[in-house]
Amino acid sequence: MKSVAIVVAICAGLAYYVWDYNTSPTGGKAKAEASASAYADAHDPEIGDCVKVKDPQGEPLPTVVDCGSPDAQYKLGEMLPGKGMHCASEYDYGIQYRNGQKFNYTLCFTKV
């Protein structure tokens, strides 16, 4: 009888975990993880991506946008690894950027 109660308790715990992870009324952990991933993707441009830069003179934050969008300000041409690097004269704008907690980059942009 004890073993049946243990199996039922384990199954109930697993069922609650799956429910909470995927469909909790507060959004669940899966939604929070997806939101965090989407945020990182939106602010982690790759070469060729167009961006809108929030606070370009203060603490710039590039947000990836569609190149055909009226919000597009710059196109990323080069990513220089390391902090304090200087963009070549062919670029119109450069910012120091930290990719999450991983790496420092100097991003070099041309105007769209």
Rank of each mutant, 00 (worst) to 15 (best):
P60I: 06
H43C: 04
C50E: 10
A38S: 11
K31I: 01
I47V: 15
D71C: 02
S35R: 15
K31R: 14
V65T: 11
A40T: 09
V64K: 09
K31M: 10
L61T: 14
P56R: 09
K54W: 04
N22W: 14
A36D: 12
D41V: 03
P70Q: 09
K29N: 12
S24C: 08
V51H: 00
V53W: 05
P70W: 08
A38M: 06
T26R: 07
Y21I: 00
E78A: 02
Y39W: 11
T63C: 01
Q57C: 00
T63M: 13
P70C: 03
D44V: 00
G68W: 05
S35A: 11
A34C: 06
K54R: 05
P56H: 04
I47P: 03
A40I: 12
Y39D: 09
L61S: 15
P56E: 06
E33Q: 12
K52S: 07
V53S: 03
D55Y: 14
N22A: 11
G28Q: 08
E78R: 05
A42G: 11
K29H: 05
D55L: 04
A72G: 08
K31N: 06
T26W: 05
Q57S: 15
A38D: 15
S37C: 00
E33I: 08
T23E: 11
Q73V: 09
S69K: 06
V53E: 07
A42K: 12
Y39R: 08
H43A: 07
E33Y: 06
D71A: 15
V51S: 02
T63K: 11
S24P: 01
P60G: 03
P70H: 10
P70L: 05
P70V: 02
A32M: 13
D41R: 11
L61N: 10
G28S: 09
K31A: 14
E59L: 10
D66V: 09
D55N: 15
I47H: 05
S35G: 08
G48T: 02
H43L: 01
D49C: 04
K52V: 13
A36C: 00
T63F: 13
V51E: 04
P45A: 01
P25C: 10
Y74T: 02
A42R: 04
A36N: 05
A38Y: 02
G28H: 10
A72C: 14
G48A: 02
T23Y: 13
T63S: 10
K31G: 08
G77T: 07
I47F: 01
D41L: 10
P45F: 04
A40R: 05
A36E: 12
K75M: 12
G27S: 09
A30N: 14
V51T: 12
Y39K: 02
N22Y: 15
A36T: 06
T63D: 09
V65R: 09
D66C: 12
A36H: 00
G77N: 07
Q57K: 13
